[in-house]
Design a protein around this nucleic acid. Structure first.
Lengths: 233, 233, 233, 233
DNA sequence: CATGAATGAGAGTTCATTCAT
DNA sequence: GATGAATGAACTCTCATTCAT
């Protein structure tokens, strides 16, 4: 849109294009080549290195040279791909949230009952922890809490996450799958809090979910307490 | 009466003040200190200033000069009371934990049932938030999560907190006040997670517990879900 | 006719273009170069681009990438034509001086009286300003003064310029067209200074010599004061 | 003004001041001491070092570490006195212009004829060159020309200089001390141009005004040509 | 010819900490 | 106790230049 206006405005160029009958496809390919030439491997190498260093040192203490060292490249190259330190971090955060949103959106459209939906959320977090523990670590220590990092766009991300989860709870209340005498927001807090604490515990203790049996047990416990409570029946 | 005109007349001095951007806050503090000749405990002034600045900027971004500015003293003086920046931080954290331990220890000796014990923990946190929101903020954002800060002594503090709470749960299980088919550690995680998420929400949103009714409701919700679950009965 | 809709339809590509902030200028230049298949002298394209950028930012602040962007080429290519940034600058300066020397040498051989010779110098500078204001700007701001740039070969250029002008003055003194009681070097300084200040004023104010009448007037004023003085007769 | 509003508003403090009848004089002295304590020697040492380095390397190439080295202090200290590199340069430039303005303003009020006024300007520049050649060098190479440096406030300084000089010329035209058939601005340009070129020549060649006789001769030459012209009478 | 990913020396700036007064 | 001038290690970011493709 924006680009095209600029292009259209330049009547001189267009006139030449017409005179020489150069098809838009040629221009197209020129642009495509320009874009695709950028080998994306290095970019993701940098992202993974950043992930690891941030996990070890935290956002503030992670130096660009640490990251470049870890990635095995010069630090100048990081600036080639990410204009500022902040951009690098924003990229990491953004990718994390997008994966969460994807899940939550798919659950919204799903026909499962609330128990199974919440189970899927828990499993998603646990899997994420197993697959990319560094990323999960950052989520817990740098994203999910610190007020300082939760400015502007970042805060929006977080609120969106809460709201999307709350929507599932509200939906369940309307379907009478779950108590309505407690505010949906409160239930959301309680559920996400339980989950987060387990993940935190794993992250902080650098603990692994040793076997699938243990994992299964934790999932069951969270759901059991959330739905049926801790009281002796 | 005070002759304010004397000050107003001397435009030259004012100009310099402006040029050198000497904030009125500093002058205020100078005046304040001069007035209270009995030299109030500078140490606690510094701690409170640190609390406020760390809340606003986070530990890493809080500069010593920010803190001394806020305290209305020179930054050299901070080093007189606290040898290092880290000591300042440690002191703040330590005071926090001690207040928690005091509570948990008193609860252990208490004869209340688990419901009332957990209620007291919740209320303690909520009161702490109302009385010293800055401190609670730091607990949530800097202590309770960040792996970086959880090294050595600090991690011990945290583990001790979990364990002391877990002890209450175990005790309740033995008294059959609470389910034993779920690991005490899991129940602890779930309870503390629920609580923490509420506190986090308040901290992150700079929300106040507006009235005691709302507060009461939240306390009840957490306990209700924890003991009886979210399922429709 | 060109099928612009093709471009409009592909929103994905456009988005990437925006994200990567690939300016429309670059695409323009790509297109331009593709069109003029006879590959126009890249060397002069680079020189003109450099001229423009140096005028805008000064030699020190002009980045090679600015110049390559302006020229619509990769910055690697600049190094193909000019081994170093400095070479680029030297080339620009050299071309400027050669044009001046050419004039001064032709004047030396000429039979005009000193008044007309000096007039030709003034007119030459004014014309140069009108035709290549960027180059004149660089002459004034980067060449004619800065001590830093006047090292080695560059200083020689400058001294040669002064000397060649002085030669005209000496010649005039010998022909008794002009006072001999003032050192030729002094007269040269005074004349060139007057001229240069006018050019500087135009350059600094980005002023144009609006009409030939104004131009005529300034030329006349400089000569009139130089030859007859500012005193009331 | 601004400050006092802030002060007046704080009724609490004022009340205490009144209760304790602390005179405003005490506060005054506290402020004064705060201001005077700053030993100004280091500041001027830095300025002189900067002057020398800038002369040698130019604004752009002058590194902060060069300056601190020259001054024999750590570079951190420069930032203690001048918040940014730019501030340091602005301070230098500002001091220069103020000395010029002082002269021009005193001349305006003076009863001398235009010949003697212009002579005083020339002598001022020559003296300045002899006393502070570094500063004069910077004026010629960095201030008086470069468009890049002439942005915002800096351009204003320059224009003010031209205008103040022009005012003297206009005054002289009105008193019929000088030709009115040539625009005052043109005459100003011619005069300042002549002067500047001499100073430039000295600066560029690192030439000294060897004896007062030579100096006298140059002053005389500039004035003689400016008022009576170069033509043979 | 032409490209642009890759390099790394080097610049500005910040800020915890020391120490003479 | 109290001050703030002084220090310098450490960090982010820039940009001329090289070189494989």
């Amino acid at each position: 849109m924006i680009c095209t206006e600029g292009l259209l405005r330049n009547k001189y160029i267009l006139k030449i294009l017409i005179d020489k009958s150069i098809s838009i496809r040629i221009i197209f390919n020129m642009i495509k080549n320009k874009i695709n030439n950028k080998k994306p491997e290095k970019r993701s190498i940098i992202l993974n290195a950043a992930l690891k260093i941030i996990k070890e040192k935290g956002f503030h203490c992670a130096r660009m040279s640490d990251i470049s060292n870890e990635a095995g490249i010069s630090y100048g190259l990081i600036y080639h791909y990410f204009k500022k330190k902040e951009r690098l971090f924003d990229t990491i955060i953004e990718e994390w949230w997008l994966s969460i949103y994807e899940l939550l959106d798919s659950l919204k459209a799903d026909n499962l009952d609330i128990h199974d939906k919440l189970k899927k959320i828990i499993v998603h977090f646990f899997n994420a922890y197993q697959e990319k523990p560094d990323l999960m670590n950052i989520f817990i220590t740098e994203i999910s809490r610190s007020t300082r990092n939760l400015i502007g766009k970042r805060l929006e991300f977080f609120i969106k996450f809460i709201s999307k989860t709350e929507a599932l709870i509200i939906d369940a209340q309307q379907k009478n799958e779950i108590r309505s005498d407690i505010k949906a927001r409160y239930l959301t807090n309680i559920f996400l809090g339980s989950l987060e604490t387990f993940v935190s515990a794993m992250v902080l203790a650098d603990q692994e979910l040793r076997d699938s049996e243990q994992k299964e047990q934790i999932v069951k416990s969270i759901l059991e307490v959330f739905f049926n409570g801790a009281s002796v029946k």
